[in-house]
Design a protein around this nucleic acid. Structure first.
Lengths: 384, 384
DNA sequence: CTGACTTACGAAGGAGCGCTTCATTAGTAG
DNA sequence: CTACTAATGAAGCGCTCCTTCGTAAGTCAG
């Protein structure tokens, strides 16, 4: 039930302006006639609307397309460059940042390595360096950034305070949103990284267009993100997807099967062990295959729980181990098939390491849209 | 992002009419001034809207309230009696039906006993008897019924075809919606009964107002229904909530702890065994308590999985065993607290056996609202 | 290069909806 | 009976969108 409310005449104009913007955002430059047809308005009215939007800086004219019959029509397009969005991925070893326009098109990316045990101040400084780097790369000033969207491990409450973070202990109880707001003069959004990755996959990855998606983060730690009805599902206490806490789901220690496999040569750094096992399994090493089988056995229990409870359209395998999806996918499918009523599609992430940053951007775009298209908050800033 | 679309001037009127209807439905009879204030319109405009709605039969005038200062204001109210809704609960042993007005206020209820093994035709006949009974009780003709909403065990696909039903094998592959549509000349909705019970609890039961709710059906069979964002969550293949299929969740055989308890006297009919055990546990029988502990141990695993994955605001315990909620609730809470990051509220259903019928009615109301308040489908039938 | 054709533009006039304003009406309080 | 209160109903205005028309700016055929 949409939040429709009638009202003044001016409200009707507002509604029409917003539909126009939405159409322009959705499909490149459009002529007046095309816009009129899509929005259902007459051409003269459409003209008035676009004139207003141009004056406000939301829309601009582009050169008419040539070679058509008849008088060339003016074309208009959404000014995606009238503002910018920043996405940040705060990982254990790396901090990634990306800058995008208002359509979520990525303009620049940077990465700042950081030691897992680095103190708080150092981490925050690295975040600032990563973001500034992006801005510098595309010659954008920080005032042009409308929204910063951050993904990190752990659970984050509604106000952007970190509740719990196993990977980055220093994060606990930190008012992350507040700390970032002091550095960057704009709105700050914080979300769990698995949820943002899930978002990215449904917006531009392998699950594009799906409404209900379960994203499995398989890597040195296990995590999950849910998309329900096309939107990120946070849960009442922002703790949705934490199935790895349940011993019976057998997720928490699952990676140990890969880490402690006998096939891993002595002296291998612990963070490379699992990767080695997966590679060995691909090459047919029976010991490694045995370890992978046991790993997927465990992975499938928690995954089946999520599938049975949610009945999603698709399960997406992401995170570090998803590089070895060829070794994992069929095995996971086979086990899910056995346990679930209806086997959803099971696919591997296509976005790789950028998954979370890109998801942060997509999350920001969604947030922006929501502000834009929610009546009573009115078309946002004007002619920046 | 609301489904806002601008358009014609008449569209604005439509929007205003709908908000007026919504306000009137929400809070009893209202005067013009009150309506105007709530919708944001001016009084003269409001008058025009209500005149139109009266002409269409959606709204009627009621006598003005007396004893107020100044000229008594006309009062208007939504004509909830201008149409009717029917809810049906197809259980193993009973078929319940209820008739309500368009606000979901229940006007009549009936129950038809039916044998678990009854053939298809007999069951359908019982449904028809139950519904006709309701109509007769409140002297309503079948033409006045806008919507029939049915709850049943098993999974039902989008078109109303039964995919799977453990309790009623004859149901399998039956086009239930189609069969009912042949008998009743109106729209037919089919849903899983646990989901409808969940709906009832969030609409008028113990979880009223909550947006994310997990409903646990505890009884001779186990089931679950999810409410996410205030709406029933079906899942992509209408199979959401089927966690009892997962052996590791330990739900499927959980009731056996109660059924086969040594405390149950020989000769007790099998359907009463669990109830006996629960009652004995309440009275302090240590053997029964032991069985209940084991039962809740199992129940808590699947429940914890749902809580960890969804992070709901509330868990509602419903179904036959919830009559013994006093024996179960604290034990369940204690186990969930141990397993989950954040313990949601855990409460017992307050609606009892009528849960599913009432939920069916609520589901019908929601469906109606959605049709009503979704633009482009326009205010439904006129002056019935 | 010219004329026919196609398509878009822009201005003018009209209808619908909501707003404000003001005199009128129907009650209660003293 | 009079003063006061609050709703009613009618009149006039402004905004938004619509339809209709003549005009402008291209392409295409000869």
């Amino acid at each position: 039930m949409a939040d429709l409310r009638g009202g003044d005449l001016s409200r009707l104009r507002q509604l029409n302006s917003l539909t126009a913007i939405r159409e322009l955002r959705g499909s490149g430059p459009l002529t007046l006639s095309a816009l009129a047809e899509r929005t259902g308005l007459s051409r003269p009215s459409m003209k008035e609307v676009t004139d207003e939007l141009m004056a406000l800086g939301w829309v601009e004219e582009v050169p008419p397309s040539q070679g058509t019959m008849g008088r060339p029509a003016r074309r208009y397009r959404f000014r995606a460059d009238s503002g910018h969005l920043v996405g940040v991925d705060i990982g254990g070893h790396n901090i990634r940042a990306a800058l995008s326009d208002l359509d979520g098109r990525i303009l620049a990316e940077t990465r700042q390595p950081v030691l897992p045990g680095a103190p708080l101040a150092e981490r925050l400084a690295a975040i600032e360096r990563a973001v500034s780097g992006c801005l510098a790369l595309s010659r954008t000033s920080v005032e042009q950034v409308w929204l910063i969207s951050v993904g990190t491990v752990g659970t984050i409450d509604v106000e952007g305070r970190v509740i719990y973070s196993a990977a980055v202990p220093a994060w606990r109880d930190l008012d992350l949103a507040g700390a970032l707001r002091e550095v960057f003069p704009c709105q700050v959004l914080i979300e769990n990284d698995s949820r943002l990755a899930a978002m990215a996959e449904t917006r531009r990855g392998v699950a594009k267009g799906a409404r209900d998606v379960v994203f499995l983060h398989v890597g040195r730690r296990m995590g999950a993100g849910l998309i329900i009805g096309g939107k990120v599902h946070r849960g009442f206490g922002a703790a949705a997807g934490e199935i790895s806490m349940l011993p019976e789901a057998r997720w928490f220690d699952a990676p140990e099967h890969l880490n402690t496999c006998a096939c891993v040569p002595e002296g291998t750094p612990p963070e490379d062990a699992a990767g080695y096992t997966l590679a060995a399994a691909r090459d047919g090493d029976p010991v490694a295959i045995e370890a992978v089988e046991r790993y997927v056995d465990d992975l499938a229990v928690g995954a089946a729980a999520m599938v049975l409870i949610m009945d999603p359209q698709m399960v997406v395998l992401g995170g570090g181990f998803s590089r070895s999806a060829d070794v994992l996918l069929d095995r996971l499918r086979e086990r899910l098939e056995r346990r679930c009523m209806r086997l959803p599609e099971v696919r591997a992430s296509t976005l790789g390491d950028e998954c979370v940053v890109v998801g942060a951007i997509d999350y920001a775009v969604e947030h922006l849209d929501e502000q834009l298209f929610t009546p009573d908050r009115g078309p946002l800033p004007v002619t920046r």
